[in-house]
Design a binder for these strands. Structure first.
Length: 257
DNA sequence: ATGGCCTCCTTTGGAGGA
């Protein structure tokens, strides 16, 4: 099974690029973040014509997540049960694989803006709620993959400027400790299960020719559960869509198991 | 250099992103 994640930064703007990418990369499921549209505007028909079912959880202007899949998802969940949230950040569902069901959890993690801001407090609360919920999800669904835009660099390898950006947003010890706590539930960063090129990133600022200079961050991840880990055969970042006209600032990450 | 870019909004500049 191939599952991918891509923060598209507006599905309205990026739909043609999503369709092109799916035609060239026929994955079993594609997790999208930052749809920036309400559910009534979701392009169900265009994706259906491309051969994909859609499970989506949108909101106007900001946030919004979806899972596109070759076969329909079951047991879908929107946002973290029991955690009051105005923002659409989580969608989960189960796909039938050759070796049994696979639970797919797609997250658009909170940005947090700055470590001294209210948004950072919300980020920490959200991360703790996610961890509590995932603990029970892993018990119910041993074959689980958590994908999305995590908005955290796991360690210094995941940032173009570890010294200059130390303890700034996406780089704080508090955020990295939360990611470590997620991994401690029994999840593994699929990208790091394999030999990877140095300076591998999944996001580049639109400003300062950041992509051309490879000044980026790796903040988009696929974490696999213990049960899935032995079956993972690859995890790659596909930089190609970042070279498109009018690209998203993020690029897809694909995991194969 | 308190920036540069992109997307959205019953827009026309500010918020949010990362």
């Amino acid at each position: 099974m191939k599952v991918a994640t891509w923060n598209v930064n507006s599905l309205s703007v990026r739909l043609p690029q999503v369709l092109d990418w799916l035609a060239a990369n026929p994955v079993d499921a594609l997790c999208l973040q930052e749809l920036k549209l309400s559910d009534d505007k979701f392009p169900v028909a265009a994706l259906q014509e491309a051969g994909y079912h859609s499970a989506f959880f949108g909101q106007k202007t900001y946030n919004g997540v979806a899972i596109l899949s070759r076969s329909p998802l079951s047991e879908t969940v929107r946002n973290i049960p029991g955690f009051e949230d105005e923002q659409a950040r989580i969608i989960a569902g189960t796909l039938q694989g050759e070796d049994g069901p696979v639970r797919i959890v797609n997250g658009y993690f909170v940005n947090g803006q700055a470590p001294d801001s209210d948004k950072f407090v919300y980020k920490m609360r959200w991360l703790q709620a996610l961890r509590d919920w995932l603990h029970s999800q892993l018990e119910a669904h041993p074959r689980l993959v958590l994908l999305g835009d995590f908005n955290i660099t796991a360690d210094d390898r995941d940032t173009w400027d570890p010294e200059g950006l130390r303890e700034t947003i996406h780089h704080t010890t508090a955020e990295r400790d939360e990611l470590k706590a997620l991994l401690a539930l029994g999840l593994h960063d699929a990208f790091r299960l394999f030999e990877q090129a140095e300076k591998s990133y999944s996001w580049w600022d639109y400003r300062e020719f950041a992509f051309r200079r490879n000044r980026g961050l790796r903040i988009d991840y696929a974490l696999v559960s213990e049960a899935l880990k032995p079956q993972v055969s690859a995890c790659v970042i596909d930089r190609a869509p970042r070279k498109n006209e009018r690209p998203s600032d993020h690029t897809p990450v694909v995991v194969t198991f």
